[in-house]
């Protein structure tokens, strides 16, 4: 299935802002992270079509995933 992945902030470094990825059916957010070489603790928020989702959320063809890194400094 085809998934549009949008990356934000530091996730763009050495990757991309937006890209279409071909992923196996039944792929989850965790699967997208592993496809991109992002470790789970690096993730702040994942959205599917603008809605907050958890790591085990299964994707459907044509959906858009947005990934924001975790930021904790002050």
């Amino acid at each position: 299935m085809k998934i549009t992945v949008k990356l934000f902030a530091g996730f763009r470094e050495n990757r991309f802002k937006v890209a279409e990825r071909e992923l196996a059916d039944g792929c989850t957010i965790a699967g997208v992270l592993s496809d991109l070489g992002i470790s789970e603790p690096e993730l702040g928020v994942a959205l599917i079509n603008g809605r907050h989702v958890t790591l085990d959320q299964v994707l459907s063809d044509g959906e858009t995933v947005s990934l924001f890194p975790k930021v904790g400094g002050g």
């Binding site: 789970e40 603790p41 690096e42 702040g44 975790k70 930021v71 904790g72």
Partner: peptide
């Protein structure tokens, strides 16, 4: 962190921040 940041306001009864850091809250970020 670096070039990046987040801003959020939460009133009593709202749990946006807890939701935002729902997983792996013990680790530091970017």
């Amino acid at each position: 962190a670096g070039w990046y940041g987040y801003l959020m306001t939460q009133y009593p009864g709202e749990r946006s921040l807890q939701k935002f850091f729902a997983h792996n809250s013990q680790e530091s970020g970017l």
